[in-house]
Simulated scan of single mutants.
Amino acid sequence: MRRTRLLAPLLAAALLLTGCTEAGPQAGVADPGYIPGTDGGTVSQFKDPDTAPVVFSGKTTDGSAFASKQYAGKVLVVNFWYAGCPPCRAEAATLNSLSERYAKQGVQFVGVNVSDDAPTAAAFERTYKTPYPSIVDQEGGAAVQLAFTASKPPKAVPSTLVLDGDGRVVARIIGLANKSVLNTLIEDAVDGTAR
Rank of each mutant, 00 (worst) to 15 (best):
M1N: 15
P9G: 03
L11V: 13
A13L: 05
A14I: 11
L16C: 07
T18W: 07
T18D: 10
C20G: 15
E22Q: 15
V29N: 05
D31I: 08
G37I: 02
T42L: 13
T42Y: 12
V43S: 05
V43Y: 07
V55S: 11
S57A: 10
G58S: 06
K59S: 05
A67V: 06
K69I: 09
K69Y: 07
A72V: 10
C85T: 15
C88W: 14
E91N: 04
E91L: 09
A92T: 04
A93E: 02
S99N: 08
A103D: 14
F109Y: 04
V110E: 01
D117Q: 04
D117I: 06
P119S: 03
P119T: 02
P119A: 03
P119K: 05
T130C: 05
S134M: 08
D137P: 12
G140A: 09
Q145R: 12
Q145F: 11
T149C: 07
A150P: 12
K152V: 11
P153K: 01
K155H: 13
V157Q: 02
P158K: 00
S159M: 02
V162Y: 01
L163F: 00
L163A: 00
G165N: 09
G167N: 06
G167K: 10
R168G: 07
V169I: 07
I173M: 05
I174D: 13
A177K: 10
K179R: 12
L182K: 03
N183A: 14
G192K: 15
T193L: 01
T193F: 07
